[in-house]
Amino acid sequence: MYQVRRSEDRGNANHGWLQSQHSFSFGYYRDPEHTGFGPLLVINEDRVQPGRGFGTHGHRDMEIISYVLDGALEHKDSMGTGSVLRYGDVQRMSAGTGVTHSEFNHSKAESLHFLQIWIEPNVKGIAPGYEEKHFTPESKQGRLRLIASPDGRGDSVVIHQDALVFASILNAGDEIAHALEEGRTAYVHVIRGDLNANGIPLSTGDALKISGETAVTLSQAENAEILLFDLPF
């Protein structure tokens, strides 16, 4: 079974310094048809003006992944972690029993573009944790590069959920398939470009929910970059 989520149908928030598109219900945007997909609860595509950002705020019992698309994301948290992330960097923060952090556009001249992803953990009350890793474009070219997993396999970041997150960059002639085990679902989010997922045309910002299928096949790509979530049903 397939359900297409078109980019223009996402929720929109314009705060001046921040323009955000919400794939699922978030903040003041409420859509009963899109409250999450399994443990995947949030995919926000955020564009932040130079020198602006999210002041210190708190989270609890959530796996938070940041995937930088363009610009520089400055992160500071109550665990004493501070870093600046750029394209190819993936950050995972496990909020656990509670953590506060801030996220700002590190640049005073250029905009910041990144994805903020929330995944509900399968365990609560753990100690907060932080991890970041860099994945080169070459490691994602024409293949699915695992960037997050429950056990850190393939040098991915560790998330506290039975979920796998892959990134891929695809161009004309590339075709890749990912098998889905029984009882698993998939969510394909197109970061940029165009491609077909199981024969369904998708473009920048579009997404596809997949359930009751045995595989995800990505083909007919044109300058495409995607995230693929392999999730428990």
Rank of each mutant, 00 (worst) to 15 (best):
G193D: 09
A197C: 11
L227V: 00
R143L: 10
E110Y: 10
T185A: 15
K76D: 05
A95F: 00
T97M: 07
R92N: 11
R192M: 09
S219D: 15
E74K: 08
P150E: 08
I65A: 00
L202W: 06
V190H: 01
S7N: 12
Q116S: 02
G11K: 04
A109L: 12
V157Y: 00
E222W: 13
H160Y: 14
G129K: 09
N196C: 13
H189Q: 11
V68Y: 02
H34M: 10
A186T: 06
I159F: 02
P32M: 11
F24A: 04
S20Q: 05
G173Y: 11
H189A: 07
S111K: 13
A172Y: 12
K209I: 09
V90S: 01
G71V: 00
A167E: 15
P137R: 06
Q141G: 06
I64G: 00
K124N: 12
I65R: 00
V84F: 08
G16E: 12
F24T: 01
G58W: 04
S149P: 04
D230A: 08
T56L: 11
E110L: 14
V216I: 10
P39E: 10
S111I: 09
T217R: 15
Y87F: 12
G11L: 03
N105F: 02
A95N: 00
G96T: 01
K133R: 14
V123Y: 10
E74H: 09
G212I: 09
M79Q: 10
D77Y: 05
G142N: 06
F104H: 08
M62E: 09
T136W: 07
G142I: 03
H75P: 02
N171V: 09
A95V: 00
H59Y: 10
H101W: 02
D46V: 01
L170W: 06
R184V: 07
F104K: 04
G173H: 10
E138A: 14
Y87M: 13
G36K: 06
A72S: 14
G80D: 06
H113R: 10
H22N: 07
E138K: 14
G38Y: 07
A172E: 15
K124V: 10
L208Y: 04
G173F: 11
L228Q: 03
Q21D: 12
I117V: 05
Q49A: 15
E222N: 15
P150T: 07
D194K: 15
I210A: 04
E110D: 15
H15Y: 15
E182C: 12
G199W: 07
Q3H: 13
V48H: 06
D206Y: 03
T56V: 13
Y28S: 14
F24S: 03
H15P: 10
G183V: 09
H160R: 14
I226G: 01
S83F: 03
D155H: 15
T97D: 07
L208H: 04
G58R: 10
S156K: 06
V216S: 07
L227P: 02
P201G: 05
L180C: 11
E8L: 12
L41K: 15
G173D: 11
L85W: 07
W118N: 00
G98W: 01
H189Y: 12
G125N: 08
I159S: 01
N122P: 10
P150L: 04
S20I: 01
D174L: 05
Q19D: 13
E120L: 13
A215G: 12
D89Y: 02
T136G: 09
V123L: 14
P201D: 08
Y67D: 08
A207L: 04
A148D: 03
P137N: 05
D9R: 11
T217H: 11
N198S: 08
G51F: 05
F166R: 05
